[in-house]
Write a protein that binds this DNA or RNA. Structure first.
Lengths: 238, 238
DNA sequence: CATTTTAAATGAGTCAAACTCATTTTCGAG
DNA sequence: CTCGAAAATGAGTTTGACTCATTTAAAATG
């Protein structure tokens, strides 16, 4: 790799990266209005006009930045969920992941929401597809949970999604707004899960004194999981 | 009232109202970037410079508009909750009210979120106190519900608040983003309440936990379903 | 290797919109 | 009616996004 002269295309892509990185930083700590195109150009060591060769305008540049953020978020979520078996552990991971990442770069998140500030004839399309891919991970977990009989299947997944991400993002916003209070992300995540558990779970799966009924249900859980494993194996065989 | 010549102070306040009304309209259907100060001035039948006698700058004007929106929202919520006795009916009212109002003027809502777009050294203070007053209504309902023994009191009200408003606002955003799907506000509201009900209610206070016999039957059902799944798979393989 | 052609980069210049301020208008008190 | 202060005005300034004629670098050609 080193030693080979980069092709034209490679040079262009590298420069785009540089610009995106610079823009991300400037947007992150300046906000939309605070981020001047001239600042971004300087940070990327590029002339101002050059920015417009790579991105139509300031909005398009911000959108590209957000697209990258979203992509990273999605990839990491996907990788993180993959090895986890239990539905609730999966949800716990997704919640943690979302909160941690969004807190780390919450400015970008707010910017993203702000991008779609009314009117301005904006094209939601690209954001929609990003969101769809991210949210698909959650949906898959939910669907599988329902299929395994661990989750109530009379609730639309859409509602669960709104509840899950809505609660988390609202909590993040609340948190950023009252910085004097101690964060307690764990508390938030645990709380959401607790409500989901006792609110979206097939009745009986909760703690309590482990009655015979509950034990039976746990056995059923285990059998369900075994079945899932078998199914996976069968898929492999084929 | 009519016939009396307005005092100087009254005239000033009236003019401020006019400006605020104009600004609200222009912001609402132009968005932040789309709303030009000159448009607002024209809509208020006032010179551009005059705007700056009443509001320090564009941001301050937007903030004032939002403050009014929030105030109205709060007053109506307060009035609406007052005569209702039952905790869940109160929550249902608050949810409905929030969704309806926010959908009607969602542009303002997004603008509000957007106002606090990073950096720009903005003072969250005023928004915080607005939010506090609005949210206090919800908190009161929750606290009373806990006191009456209708709600679990091991959950922090803050979490319930994040869940309630977070879910609703996320749902609203989802809705605005996918206009092809049918709205179904009722569904959303009902869903949130259902989850709250079965997730935040003291067990036994409302729906009794199912009897052991019922649970056994459910377990049997689940096992049957598992078996069916396995059989299907095996058939596929063969 | 020299030359032509084509792509990429530049930054001075344009333009639009937020904001300022010297001037004018309005209005009430004396 | 007159004067002074408060309020309003809009032409002018400033700022920052965006354009485009020109320059520079790279690739193709012979």
């Amino acid at each position: 790799m080193s030693g080979t002269k980069p092709t034209r295309r490679e040079r262009l892509e590298a420069r785009e990266e540089v610009i995106l990185d610079a823009a991300r930083k400037v947007f992150r700590d300046g906000g939309y209005a605070g981020a001047k195109m001239s600042d971004i150009a300087r940070a990327a060591a590029v002339a101002e006009g050059t920015l417009y060769l790579y991105f139509k305008n300031k909005d398009a540049l911000l959108e590209a930045v957000i697209e990258r953020f979203y992509d990273d978020l999605t990839d990491d979520a996907e990788r993180g969920v993959a090895p986890i078996e239990d539905t609730f552990e999966r949800l716990a991971f997704l919640a943690r992941h979302h909160v941690d990442r969004c807190l780390a770069e919450w400015q970008l998140l707010e910017l993203m929401i702000g991008l779609y500030r009314g009117g301005m004839g904006y094209d939601y399309g690209s954001h929609r597809s990003l969101n769809r891919r991210y949210v698909a991970i959650f949906d898959r977990v939910i669907r599988e949970g329902m299929h395994r009989g661990e989750l109530r299947d009379d609730l639309p997944p859409r509602l669960l999604r709104d509840l899950f991400y809505g609660t988390l993002e609202y909590a993040i916003r609340t948190l950023r707004m009252h910085p004097e209070e101690t964060p307690d992300n764990d508390g938030t995540v645990a709380g959401v899960l607790s409500i989901l558990r006792q609110g979206a779970v097939v009745p009986g799966a909760s703690a309590q004194p482990p009655s015979e009924a509950v034990r039976l249900e746990r056995v059923a859980d285990r059998l369900t999981r075994v079945a899932t494993r078998l199914e996976t194996r069968l898929d492999d065989v084929r």
